[in-house]
Design a protein around this nucleic acid. Structure first.
Length: 283
DNA sequence: TGCCAGGATGATG
DNA sequence: CATCATCATGGC
């Protein structure tokens, strides 16, 4: 249960160029945030609810203590990561420089590993509105209530001790067995997510893919958004086409260790700039 | 209504 | 190792 003093708040002197909430929270890397009004965002990460307000000059984290910011939100929002290094390297690539200039404030969130893993298991072969709805039902059914009708993301144990039949109302489709089997593997210690967090990328990737329902794409998303692996590279068929347009010979090997970040910039750029969309891919 | 969604699995060439 | 039907459900 998270204590929340609505009087306190943390103010960060950050411009949208340094952290752009609308792009960062609404690009499909997390699924529990929504924008009730322009410049305002609220959502839940793990078992913490937060409301953020962005102005051109600053970001206010409402109801967040300085301590909670330092120990959690700072890391969650990617603010303990030096993007200057990444951006300088990406700027050396013409295509990436363009994507970077288009939305410099994109950040990779550092979500909880289990939450990211389960979220992206649910995301497979689905769409964002439905993914959000599924995850919301999952939390309301198996997550701890944290007040005011809000629910934490379920623990592995809570998901593991449920019967498969209890998943039916969630309408996860065939993904229900994936979620359950993954939760049981974690809860029973057959898979050690904290251990995977310390592994090198290729090893972590292999470890995640031993889980039922976790293939290349889901593993890559979980690694990038939940395990801090900036080199993870979640390329799907759509991105494959888009990447080919910019990099016919393949993505630069020199950027392999920051491929994930680079792809997020490209993804946003390609998705929102009509001119840059590969042939045959309207929108 | 039909097509598709930030896929993975298991069977089959 | 590459292809392919199949999976359950809802968004549009």
């Amino acid at each position: 249960m998270q204590r929340m003093d609505t009087r306190q708040e943390v103010r960060l002197a950050l411009s949208p160029g340094e952290l752009d909430l609308s792009v960062t929270l609404d690009c499909g890397q997390c699924f529990r945030f929504q924008s009730p009004a322009p410049g305002e965002w609220e959502g839940i990460a793990g078992n913490r609810w937060i409301r953020l307000i962005q102005t051109p000059e600053e970001i206010r984290l409402c109801g967040v203590s300085r301590e909670d910011y330092e120990s959690f939100w700072r890391r969650y929002l990617g603010l303990d990561t030096d993007y200057g290094v990444f951006c300088r390297r990406m700027a050396e690539e013409p295509a990436l420089r363009e994507a970077l200039a288009y939305a410099p404030g994109i950040r990779i969130l550092r979500q909880d590993p289990f939450e990211a893993l389960v979220s992206f298991i649910i995301s497979q072969n689905s769409n964002i509105p439905r993914i959000r709805a599924c995850i919301e039902r999952l939390c309301r059914t198996f997550g701890e209530e944290i007040g005011e009708g809000r629910y934490a993301f379920p623990t592995p144990e809570a998901l593991a001790r449920a019967e498969l039949s209890a998943y039916a109302p969630l309408a996860l489709g065939y993904r229900d067995t994936y979620v359950l089997s993954c939760a049981r593997a974690v809860a029973e210690g057959r898979v050690d997510l904290a251990g995977i967090e310390r592994m090198p990328l290729d090893q972590a990737r292999a470890a995640l893919q031993t889980l039922h329902g976790v293939g290349p794409k889901v593993a890559e998303c979980a690694l990038l958004f939940g395990f801090g692996q900036m080199g993870a590279f979640p390329v799907d068929t759509w991105m494959k086409k888009a990447l080919l347009r910019f990099y016919p010979a393949g993505f630069p090997e020199a950027l392999a260790d920051i491929a994930g970040i680079a792809q997020q910039y490209l993804f946003h750029y390609i998705r929102t700039c009509r001119e840059a969309v590969p042939a045959g891919q309207g929108r």
